[in-house]
Design a protein around this nucleic acid. Structure first.
Lengths: 340, 340
DNA sequence: ACATCAAATGTAAGCGCTTACATTTATAAC
DNA sequence: GTTATAAATGTAAGCGCTTACATTTGATGT
């Protein structure tokens, strides 16, 4: 691999001049610029970006930490981010945290030690304190889907209370009065918020939230399956089920079929996230849109703006959910009565 | 950020010794090792891996180029790869090629200029010649889902002929005789192979392949939708439709509903890939399993073995598809007759 | 006590770039 | 033709590490 030194020799100029034409940041005469680019072409020269990073203390790469590389949720987010950076000549280093504190920390440290200029973090397991301490460090970062008041200007969030409210309101408006709920893990803020919005809507309809109709899941499909099974076995009747995300909703749909329930006639089911496969399930799932791709792009814009001082559209940190009505909520449902 | 220099000062040893304890590759007395690690802890020292890469000419990172960061196919692949490398202390730099020749080349060059020790490529647009030339370069790479005879030992492939055969055979065994086919773009080898396997099965059942029942799609959902619409409008009847991947199959299912066809009674539909959402569509889609996660892990093993000289399970380059029977193929179908 | 040799440590030259500063060259004003 | 000033180019010192080679230290055998 040719180095800058060989290029400079071939072009008959100094290292510095070659560097200047690469970064075209200083005055270089047309004649020498031509000589240099010719030499580069001849040698097939490619700058070694590791060396560039070390020397300039700027790697032109930003780190992205997500929980998982797979799954319907992270794909669109990564894609939105990658796109934005590609257009700006920045590069993406991706690590997965697997919702595990140790691995999340490892991932963050790797990205920092890799001289990332900025970080986009979607972390769940790491503590607020850790992040606050991290914010004092040299690598700026933005948080997706996590709120820490001390870091509020770098938290990109969905209004989950509103989302929970929207979902419940829609179901209530269809005439349902007994509504079961499968939540996410309630130590997570988003799970809590969605449930809070749910309760607000209930209150607005003068209905009380029935704790017996709450099942705490973990945002995974299996817990949706288990959740509906468990709810079906207890004695309080319900005609609709709201799940705190689409994966659990899909699990619940499978469960409903195994229980012999006709959807949506005997049981209405509502999801959350508007993950792409919700259009493909049967019946098509009504849900709440989580504009995760947009939020990813916004996170990328944040980095562009705050780290690279680029012009960007105005930064926005709070995003609004939207109701997506499809065919999984029936207008009037027969009550499922208890098993006992 | 503390540097190795500060650590050496604090510990009262030379740079080299600090480096040695980091890499524990030479004789260092217990006493000094202790002094050094204590100094590291005190300073919260983290080696700068950019500098390490530059000096050692080994970045401990491997590059991965995929077409898209999203979609049901690449997620499991990336995840399998990331997992393997995490366990070995290697890191992953991901770029997307978007099936575009220029962008694929850019991506590859970026990864190389980033001093990746090895590359895993899932490329579609770049030419064989380009890859052959690339193989002469300094960065070793392995190809997923692409066959180039000159590079055959580094091509990790699915036996697509067999897969196409399996799908068709299953449909034939259920008694279907008139089978429509929505292929991928036929300039792509995998699309060609799947169709070839399809024809083999037909031949085995003494059936002729009807060109009128072939629609060439592009592996995307929309082309499945359009494909079935077009097939339905022509005059040759068929009772089953085989799609060259699941996305098109899902598109075709939507199309079938719009055409008022009951699935699978009036039309049987078969997919290919066994993407995770095939279990969630209705009726659940019968398909052919593409073990992409395993193949990703194998690619990672290849790099570990060939680039880092690690012990790995034996390298395997050809993977076998498997039939996945679910509920989208009916035993005996009423014939769809022509529209005309 | 001395030589011998291995183990432990230090020295310093890079890795391929960037950039502050110094120097040279061209341009313009008088 | 000077001189002042700006533009173009060169010089060399790093960036934070690794590693070949040199040196020192400590055992061991005699």
């Amino acid at each position: 691999m040719a180095t800058i030194y060989e290029v400079s020799k071939l072009a008959g100029v100094s290292l510095a001049t070659v560097s200047r034409v690469m970064n075209n940041n200083a005055n270089v005469s047309d004649a020498t610029r031509k000589k240099v680019t010719a030499a580069m072409d001849e040698l097939g020269y490619r700058p070694n970006s590791i060396a560039q990073s070390l020397a300039s203390n700027c790697s032109n790469s930003v780190g992205l930490l997500v929980s998982e590389l797979q799954g319907p949720f992270y794909g669109p987010m990564m894609s939105g981010i990658e796109n934005t950076f590609r257009n700006q000549g920045k590069h993406l280093i991706i690590a997965a945290g697997h919702s595990d504190e140790e691995r999340e920390k490892q991932g963050i440290e790797f990205l920092i030690s890799r001289n990332c200029d900025g970080l986009i973090l979607h972390v769940e397991a790491v503590s607020d304190d850790y992040l606050i301490k991290l914010s004092k460090g040299r690598t700026p970062f933005v948080l997706i889907n996590r709120y820490i008041s001390e870091l509020s200007d770098r938290c990109i969030l969905l209004n989950n209370i509103k989302g929970g409210y929207l979902a419940a309101k829609h179901v209530l408006e269809q005439g349902h009065k007994n509504i079961a709920y499968i939540s996410g893990p309630l130590w997570k803020q988003d799970a809590k918020d969605r449930l809070e919005g749910h309760k607000q809507a209930l209150a607005e309809f003068n209905l009380e939230f029935d704790e017996n109709l709450l099942f705490q899941g973990d945002f995974m499909e299996a817990s949706g399956y288990e959740g509906l099974k468990a709810l079906h076995e207890q004695t309080h009747p319900f005609t609709a089920l709201i799940c705190a995300n689409d994966e659990m909703a899909v699990g619940a749909m499978a469960s409903a079929r195994d229980l012999g329930l006709t959807l949506p006639k005997q049981l209405s089911i509502m999801g959350y996230d508007n993950v792409f496969f919700t259009r493909h399930v049967y019946p098509q799932l009504s849900t709440v849109n989580y504009p995760i791709d947009e939020m990813g792009r916004m996170a990328a814009d944040w980095v562009l703006n705050q780290v690279y001082q680029k012009q960007t559209p105005p930064l926005q940190t709070l995003f609004e959910p939207e109701l997506v009505v499809r065919h999984s909520i029936s207008r009037q449902s027969a009550q499922i009565t208890s098993q006992g």
